[in-house]
């Protein structure tokens, strides 16, 4: 019987490792969106002295390869320094799993992206950046690039989902075209905050929905 997934993928899918959340995580990142059918969220605990990833956990919404790649990424990066972890590639993840069907390679890319974003967030937070650029609208847009509108499955910046971006003295206010009672409103808010708040010169991020006027 020809099954699209390797035995290893099925094994990780059935018994994923490092599932869950870390409450006092030093870095968090989400990539993908429920609209695309693929979403990974990583939580990292990093030793401030050694810069080593001491603990890493994941949550995943998606297909078997999504769950398996997220799981393998946590194993491959655990106890590595952030510099070592940054070098981890989707190819390495895929190889370790005995290969992925071509249509599912993007799952590995997603998991690696999440790891890199989490490390980048950590570097912002800890002042580890080599070059400190002041946040401007360009940087905000770049960071929001991969946030997906849950209604359409399209990038939020491309479909007038983000109505307004305000930046004032380290405070960002993003106005989005979504009602606050949408089932994924909280996820979207969380994702936007998660992507912008780690920026080194940002103090606070607000997300305002259609039916809201004030900052929450």
């Amino acid at each position: 019987m020809s099954f699209p997934y390797s035995e290893k993928v099925m094994e990780y899918f059935s018994h994923p490792k490092n599932v869950g959340e870390i409450e006092d995580a030093d870095a968090v990142a989400t990539e993908g969106s429920p609209a695309c059918g693929d979403m990974v969220k990583l939580y990292l605990k990093i030793n401030p002295e050694t810069k080593s990833i001491e603990d890493i956990k994941f949550k995943s919404y998606g297909c078997a390869s999504n769950i398996a790649t997220a799981s393998i990424i946590t194993e491959l990066s655990k106890n590595k320094t952030i510099e070592e972890a940054k070098k981890l590639t989707w190819k390495k993840a895929s190889e370790t799993l005995g290969g992925l069907p071509p249509a599912k390679v993007h799952c590995a890319v997603l998991a690696v992206d999440a790891l890199r974003t989490a490390i980048e967030n950590y570097e912002h937070k800890m002042g580890l950046l080599k070059e400190k650029k002041s946040t401007d609208t360009n940087i905000i847009e770049k960071r929001l690039k991969r946030v997906i509108n849950p209604l359409t499955g399209l990038e939020v910046l491309k479909v007038n989902f983000v109505k307004k971006i305000d930046l004032d003295d380290g405070i960002i206010t993003i106005t989005v075209n979504l009602d606050s009672d949408h089932p994924f409103a909280n996820n979207i808010r969380e994702e936007i905050v998660e992507r912008l708040e780690p920026l080194w010169d940002i103090k606070k991020v607000y997300v305002i929905f259609n039916d809201e006027n004030e900052r929450h």
Partner: peptide, 30 residues
């Protein structure tokens, strides 16, 4: 709610149950 169909289909298949999903992950065209 909150879960993706292909994962459900695969898990059920391992338990001997055959169903399908309208999820993109399941379709040939994604």
């Amino acid at each position: 709610d909150y879960i993706e169909g292909e994962s459900v289909v695969l898990h059920l298949d391992m338990r001997g149950i055959s169903v399908i999903t309208g999820s993109a992950c399941f379709s040939r065209a994604l």
